[in-house]
Design a protein around this nucleic acid. Structure first.
Lengths: 104, 104
DNA sequence: TCAATAGTTCGGAAATATGGGACTATTGAA
DNA sequence: TTCAATAGTCCCATATTTCCGAACTATTGA
């Protein structure tokens, strides 16, 4: 039983968030999660075509540890949600300003 | 005679900018350049205390290649300027939103 | 109980970052 | 000139991080 590590709101750092979003794949994941709130790599429905599972798992871990997303187990799947409230509270306007330019 | 590589405005990428700013040292450099537009590592006046020259040189190269700063030779020194116009044209609001939170 | 599926973890290879030291370029002084 | 001082780059060895195949774990459904 794996329990995930999520930083508390006040422990979310700007450099951490930027580093997490500095990767094109992760940027797409966050974008995807905001429009279609849900899944993981999970073969289908993912914004990630040919990326191996282990790599995706890493990307999600980075996003999680940066404080950008929250992951819960939902049966055999994982449910990921962008921590909009936390990020917006900590860095108002940041997420919107970045994602505005994360063109498909 | 070293000539620097600066990407054209349209070649500046979001991921590149975020990656460049994802490092605390580089974030401080950009912040410093905006308030006190000028120098390089240059011993004094730098926002960077104990970082070796070669490492700083690397950081400035990353900032340069990401399109965030423009470097020109000015005698024996280098003059660095944040490419605010280019960044703002390409990603309106982004730089301000990020630097707003780059607390000292 | 077994197969299938979602995702993590492990471990080695590849890529990247760090920083010491040698090198280059410019300036200013003797 | 020539020489010393200074700013910064380049090279290269080491350290860290990322990538991804393969093995593993957990849950569900038959």
């Amino acid at each position: 039983m794996v329990q995930f590590v999520h930083p508390a709101r006040q422990d979310i750092t700007l450099a951490g968030v930027l580093a997490a979003l500095a990767d094109p794949v992760r940027l797409q994941i966050v974008r995807g999660l905001l429009t279609e709130p849900a899944c993981m790599s999970c073969t289908a429905a993912s914004p990630c075509p040919d990326i191996p599972k282990s790599t995706l798992s890493n990307h999600f871990r980075v996003l999680r540890e940066s404080g950008l997303i929250h992951t819960t187990k939902k049966g055999v799947e994982h449910r990921n949600v962008v921590r909009e409230a936390d990020i917006n509270a900590r860095f108002p306007g940041l997420l919107k300003a970045i994602l505005k330019h994360a063109g498909a």
